[in-house]
């Protein structure tokens, strides 16, 4: 079972109190977007073995969304952070770099 830190409640929370929301840091495309861009936004999701960024909602707790940087293969969690950001904060990237030198996820590294 994943046990993640809710950054809003500042406590560890069992997966069963959370709701998983899929890949984080997606950019929304609406009317006027090219078919390919829209398809990408709607359907194409990264499924890496290794570093990944995910959306989670503390649904049985504060109700807030947060983001998690974790390793899908080892289940190591590099950090969790508030959802109100378009890219992972530097502290999270540093934490990942420390454990996974040279990592890359999408346009981040």
């Amino acid at each position: 079972m994943l046990i993640l830190h809710c950054p809003h409640c500042d406590r560890m929370v069992d997966e069963t109190d959370l709701h998983a929301g899929g890949e984080a840091h997606l950019k929304r495309y609406g009317p006027g977007s090219e078919a390919e861009v829209f398809e990408n936004y709607l359907f194409m999701r990264a499924n890496p073995k290794g570093v990944h960024f995910e959306r989670w909602r503390h649904v049985y707790g504060c109700g807030k969304w947060f983001l998690a940087a974790r390793n899908t293969a080892t289940l190591e969690v590099y950090g969790t952070y508030a959802a109100q950001t378009t890219e992972p904060p530097q502290a999270i990237r540093d934490a990942i770099s420390e454990k996974q030198p040279g990592w890359r996820w999408g346009t981040f590294q």
Binding site: G21, R57, V59, W65
Partner: peptide, 13 residues
């Protein structure tokens, strides 16, 4: 309710 919170918190915060 969750759908609304999602868009408010994660897109139009």
């Amino acid at each position: 309710h969750a759908h609304m919170e999602d868009w408010l918190q994660c897109e139009w915060w």
